[in-house]
């Protein structure tokens, strides 16, 4: 007899064609197929989705908040990656 709790799954829903799947929450299911079914019943009761992804929660590897400084701040100083960095003479359009 197995007394284990059903694993936790993270649920991602594509709300309509053309958009990314977006994380909406989690749920419990004994296997992937059931996780999809449960996600359909729990998270799309009001036509919120056209496609579902489920990922077992313990398969998600996340960055550490304490590393946030070194991971993300260096990008802040690279203004040249953004179009506002460049001067365009007056009168030039379509650019």
């Amino acid at each position: 007899m197995s007394n284990k709790e059903w694993p936790l799954w993270e649920v991602f829903i594509r709300s309509k064609q053309g958009l990314n799947h977006k994380h909406v929450g989690s749920l419990r299911a004994s296997d992937a197929q059931m996780a999809v079914d449960n996600a359909r019943d729990v998270y799309t009761r009001r036509s919120e989705g056209v496609s579902i992804w489920v990922v077992e929660s313990n398969s998600v590897f996340a960055s550490e908040p304490t590393d946030a400084d070194s991971l993300f701040e260096p990008a802040n100083s690279k203004a040249y990656r953004h179009p506002m960095f460049y001067d365009v003479p007056d009168g030039i359009s379509h650019m």
Binding site: W6, L27, R28, A29, D37, N38, D41, V42, R45
Partner: peptide, 11 residues
């Protein structure tokens, strides 16, 4: 028997 299935049955 579990919350998820309660919701499924009601559907």
């Amino acid at each position: 028997p579990i919350l998820e299935e309660d919701i499924a049955l009601t559907n």
